[in-house]
Amino acid sequence: MDTQLLTKIQQTHLAVWNEKDRTTRDALMQTIYADDIKMYDKGFILSGSAAVSDFIDTLFAGDADFTFTLTKPMESTQHGARLYWEIRTGPQPNVLTGMDFFVVEKEKVAHLFVFMDAQ
């Protein structure tokens, strides 16, 4: 995966997960996520960019101070990439950490695997 695409995915993915405005977030998502993206979490699978955006809405509804940041630069191999992150929530930050693994097809994220570290 070329550096330019990797940078675009990293920056836009962070922007998507921090964007509270649904219209802005959905427009950002279209630039890097396939319309039929699959997001895999330990307890569920989401299908389609609308479902992923709905999920992000629920995170903000639960905690308006939700902040998603990367903890080290994204790394890639062939058509895959990983991004290590942390989430801070609330006035007294509670930190969650994990990793997202992306499968990229036709220069868009087709599959997003979310791994949360044990708390």
Results as ranks from 00 to 15, higher is better:
Ala51Gly: 06
Lys8Asp: 08
Pro73Asn: 13
Arg22Asn: 02
Asp36Ser: 13
Asp63Thr: 12
Ile9Arg: 12
Thr71Phe: 06
Lys38His: 08
Gly48Ser: 10
Ala51Val: 03
Ala81Asn: 00
Val104Tyr: 04
Arg25Ala: 03
Gln4Phe: 08
Tyr33Ala: 12
Thr69Ile: 14
Arg82Gly: 00
Asp2Thr: 10
Val103Asn: 01
Leu14Phe: 06
Asp54Gln: 05
Lys38Asn: 06
Thr67Gly: 04
Asn94Ala: 15
Thr58Tyr: 02
Ala64Asp: 09
Ile32Tyr: 07
Asp57Trp: 11
Asp36Ala: 14
Gln92Lys: 13
Glu19Thr: 15
Met99Trp: 02
Ile87Asp: 01
Leu112Ser: 07
Ala34Val: 06
Ala81Ile: 00
Leu14Trp: 02
Asp65Ser: 15
Glu86Pro: 00
Lys20Asp: 03
His111Ile: 11
Lys106Ala: 12
Leu83Lys: 01
Tyr33Lys: 05
Gln92Arg: 09
Thr23Tyr: 08
Gly98Asp: 02
Arg88Pro: 01
Asp41Ile: 05
Lys42Tyr: 09
Val95Tyr: 06
Phe60Val: 12
Phe44Cys: 07
Phe113Thr: 08
Phe68Asp: 02
Ala50Phe: 09
Ile45Glu: 13
Phe115Pro: 01
Arg25Leu: 05
Glu105Ile: 07
Phe55Gly: 06
Val109Trp: 03
Asp2Val: 05
Ala118Gln: 14
Glu19Asn: 06
Ala15Cys: 10
Arg22Phe: 11
Asp21Tyr: 11
Gly43Val: 02
Val109Asp: 07
Val95Asn: 03
Asp57Tyr: 07
Met1Pro: 06
Thr7Ile: 10
Ser76Lys: 00
Val103Met: 06
Thr71Ala: 10
Val109Pro: 02
Thr23Cys: 13
Met39Arg: 13
His79Cys: 06
Ser76Thr: 05
Met29Leu: 13
Gly62Asp: 09
Lys20Thr: 03
Pro91His: 05
Met39Asn: 07
Met99Ser: 09
Gly98His: 01
Glu105Pro: 00
Asp35Ala: 15
Asp63Pro: 07
His13Thr: 06
Asp2His: 14
Met99Thr: 13
Ile87Tyr: 02
Val95Phe: 05
Ile56Lys: 03
Gln92Met: 13
Arg22Val: 09
Ser53Glu: 05
Lys20Arg: 15
Phe113Ser: 05
Ser76Glu: 00
Phe60Thr: 07
Met39Ile: 10
Val114Phe: 03
Asp57Thr: 12
Gly48Cys: 11
Thr23Asn: 10
Ala110Gly: 02
Ala61Val: 08
Lys20Asn: 03
Gln11Arg: 13
Arg25Cys: 04
Lys38Gly: 00
Lys42Pro: 00
Arg22Met: 05
Thr67Pro: 05
Gln4Gly: 03
Gly62Gln: 14
